[in-house]
């Protein structure tokens, strides 16, 4: 299919080349003045270390493992996230705990080790989608960098505390209830 290209007819003023140049210079000068008198906070450029970008809700940044009010982890170590993760970067080891195990006869499960390899994570948010307990969230922190590979292996306590300061919560480093050894009961 042929396309008819319309040739722009230039007037004599435009063909002198001087007038269009002046017009162009007017445009650039406008931009110059506008940019010069725009305060730094209103410019398009975000001066990164001094200013930070506000991430929109729904941004998939650094993970947080959610906790209950008493500080117990919400995760029940169901391995759904590890299963869903396309990058295979979540590794979980489960453990049992309960206050109730002797009275009611069952234990609950929680992760003993919950590790995400942030170097392999692609921040796809599949873990968040998969989690039946809403225990893992991807939130708006995008400054995930470190000096060595080892410190990019985020463990359970790192993940529980990633947003502690931003949310005004206390940092925690141990579970409120101790784990129980697997019961070997003579039934």
């Amino acid at each position: 299919m042929g396309v008819v290209v319309k040739k722009v007819e230039l007037g004599w003023l435009d063909r002198t080349y001087v007038w269009p140049v002046l017009k162009g210079m007017g445009i650039t000068f406008n931009h110059f003045i506008k940019q010069l008198f725009t305060p730094t906070s209103k410019r398009y450029t975000i001066q990164y270390p001094d200013m930070k970008k506000e991430m929109p809700t729904g941004y998939r940044g650094l993970h947080e493992l959610k906790r209950f009010e008493d500080g117990a982890i919400k995760c029940v170590a169901c391995f759904m996230c590890a299963e869903a993760c396309p990058a295979r970067c979540i590794s979980i080891e489960a453990e049992e705990f309960s206050d109730l195990n002797f009275t009611q006869g069952f234990e609950e499960k929680r992760p003993k080790v919950f590790k995400i390899d942030m170097l392999r994570c692609i921040y796809c948010g599949m873990c968040e989608e998969a989690c039946p307990k809403d225990a893992i969230w991807l939130r708006n922190d995008y400054e995930v960098a470190a000096y060595d590979r080892l410190s990019m292996q985020f463990g359970k306590w790192d993940l529980m505390n990633t947003y502690a300061e931003a949310d005004g919560k206390a940092r925690i480093s141990e579970d409120p209830t101790p784990s129980v050894p697997r019961r070997v009961l003579a039934m």
Binding site: H31, Q35, L36, R43, Y44, T45
Partner: peptide, 10 residues
Amino acid sequence: RGSAMIQDRI
């Protein structure tokens, strides 16, 4: 600096 300002950069 001038070119940056003209192009709305810093």
